[in-house]
């Protein structure tokens, strides 16, 4: 099975979509001549031309709104936003139009739009370029939210997103664009709402998504050294959420640590904790722990940024505290 990284897995999937369906167009800031600020779309302008791969002005709201309108008009647009923080300039379009118009039109209009956005800290870009706020979008009925953490998932989830009839927020963690992994040659897709057990264990469940899955895996390795077998669950999508996978794992292990880069207060992790207490309360041997980003705007200085992000040691500490 060939190996590739997330960036290339995404690019190959976008290329195939452009090849297979003339309704697919890409739009975004610097995705063409520049090649994409994270290099995902490099070469696609040269291959498909500027009607299919459209460099846009720095106008997030109209870029997303134009994607919504184009989807309403029969296209299959894919919009790239440079970071999730910039997506808030398009919040009106995403929240007030993309997520509502199918419902509000009594089912007449649908918006098959994929909005890709880079997310996550670790690159010393401070508070306007570093947050992982996928959970904010997961809050909204009408949207679907995909959070890949491996090259296999990146390709498989993007394929599913491209077949969706609804708007998909596709969150790409910047720290793992270069992460390598196996991606099969044959056609496959990863369905939404199906979490994956990345490592089996019977002592504690570690729930993660996007970049935090890899911290969870490293933490599980460290815990194994102390005779604690952690089960690592990769959510893959936040909406729809594979609630059964979480509950079934917790029923087996009786302990859970929920990990995310996002802030703790009012965050998506709190939703997972609530679901666990609603559906597996009697199985729990310890309160569910959360490991999240620090409750501050992301700082620039390396030592502060590192301190503001969750780490494998935090996860290990949380798991050990449950014994």
């Amino acid at each position: 099975m060939p190996e590739t990284n997330i960036r290339e897995a995404l690019r190959q999937t976008l290329r195939e979509a452009l090849q297979q369906d003339e309704h697919v167009i890409l739009m975004g800031e610097d995705i063409g001549a520049y090649g994409g600020s994270y290099g995902v779309t490099r070469g696609l302008l040269q291959e498909f031309g500027d009607e299919r791969v459209r460099d846009t002005p720095i106008s997030e709201s109209v870029v997303v709104g134009c994607g919504i309108g184009a989807a309403m008009g029969g296209m299959r647009p894919i919009v790239e936003l440079m970071t999730i923080n910039f997506s808030f300039l398009a919040f009106d379009q995403i929240i007030n139009v993309a997520s509502t118009v199918h419902y509000m039109s009594g089912g007449q209009i649908n918006v098959p739009l994929v909005i890709r956005m880079a997310s996550g800290g670790g690159s010393q870009l401070a508070a306007t370029h570093s947050h992982d706020l996928a959970g904010w979008y997961a809050h909204v009925p009408g949207l679907k939210v995909a959070v890949p953490s491996t090259p296999y998932d990146a390709r498989g989830l993007l394929k599913t997103a491209l077949r969706e009839e609804n708007t998909v927020i596709f969150v790409e963690h910047t720290a793992i664009y270069g992460l390598r992994g196996e991606v099969p040659d044959e056609d496959y897709s990863v369905p939404f709402g199906q979490a994956q057990v990345m490592r089996e264990g019977g002592d504690v469940t570690i729930v993660g998504y996007s970049g935090s899955v890899h911290q969870a895996l490293r933490a599980a390795e460290m815990l194994a050294g102390q005779a604690i077998e952690a089960e690592v669950l990769n959510l893959r999508t936040l909406r729809p959420l594979d609630v059964d996978a979480i509950i079934n794992s917790v029923k087996k292990t009786t302990r859970a640590v929920v990990v995310e880069d996002d802030w703790c207060f009012g965050g998506f992790g709190g939703e997972i904790v609530a679901l666990i207490q609603e559906r597996a309360f009697d199985y729990l041997d310890a309160p569910v722990a959360r490991v999240c980003g620090a409750d501050v705007p992301m700082p620039y200085a390396k030592v502060l940024e590192t301190a503001a992000l969750p780490s494998e040691q935090h996860i290990v500490d949380a798991a050990l505290a449950m014994r």
Binding site: V62, G67, M72, G73, M75
Partner: peptide, 29 residues
């Protein structure tokens, strides 16, 4: 939609981007 009346929108100015998108679709198609 059967009349291509694609909606009344109640965020002031929020539907102008949609008009660009519908027009882009018409142009591409």
């Amino acid at each position: 939609v059967s009349k291509h009346f694609m909606g009344g929108y109640a965020i002031v100015g929020g539907h102008l981007p949609l008009s660009c998108g519908l027009a882009l679709a018409s142009k591409q198609l």
